[in-house]
Amino acid sequence: MILSKEQQTEITRIAVFAGQILHQHGAESRLIEQTTQRLGIALGAESIELAITPDAIVITSLVEGHCVTTTRRCGDRGINMQMVCEVQRICVMLEKQLIDIKEVKKRLHRLKPYKYNRWLVVLMIGFSCASFSHFFGGDRAVYWTTFIASSCAMVIRQELGHRQHNPFVNFALTAFVATTITCLASVFEIGENPKIAMAASVLLLVPGFPLINAVSDMLKGYVNMGIARWVFSTLLAVSVSIGIVAAIELTGVSGWAL
């Protein structure tokens, strides 16, 4: 198959678009690189070379000695596994020759991030943090305190996220609200050990996905991506702890586990 310059440019654009979607929705670096390469090669390129940086990807396709290079910025759009699944599915279908290049392009552009009903998410996150309080050994009063605090916190987190606030501001404010509620419960001595509710109600703010991605990126040789993700999640944890400390100072409840 001999490709014209235009066709090669088209292939490169499609591959970089797929890579951009994966990067924006929180896929790990190995997955971004492999999927983009497989897509480009299945579309007819000889090889695809990829440089992944924390906020952009650079891709070069090679066809009969000609190179086409392009760069895309990848702003964070929040973790969305459904998008990652869809891109992967398109890649597999293309490799099995179930769809052609036009169809690939159409499907990639048609992808829309699916979001769960926000109140359902609030309910489930409330119960999640309440379950954590059970793991820490809390009784029933502590369970419901945690449920209320983390549900309110989740509502605030969604509202601020919806208005595109800075994630650090968002996490600090959310932690402040959750801890204020649990500190009040601690002042009124609800439950046997109200301190457990303080620890459990902020666990919705643990940046678990970036942390796991960070370590697995570093393990698989993408050290710069791993460091970037690690620093980002550490900063998120720092802003959460500043929110917690502010709430503790405000309500005058002494002591986290310290």
Binding site: Q82, Y114, M124, I125, S128, F132, F209
Partner: peptide, 12 residues
């Protein structure tokens, strides 16, 4: 419960 809750945050 937390596994499903956080899976929903990640839009699985």
């Amino acid at each position: 419960i937390p596994a499903v809750g956080f899976a929903m945050v990640f839009n699985v």
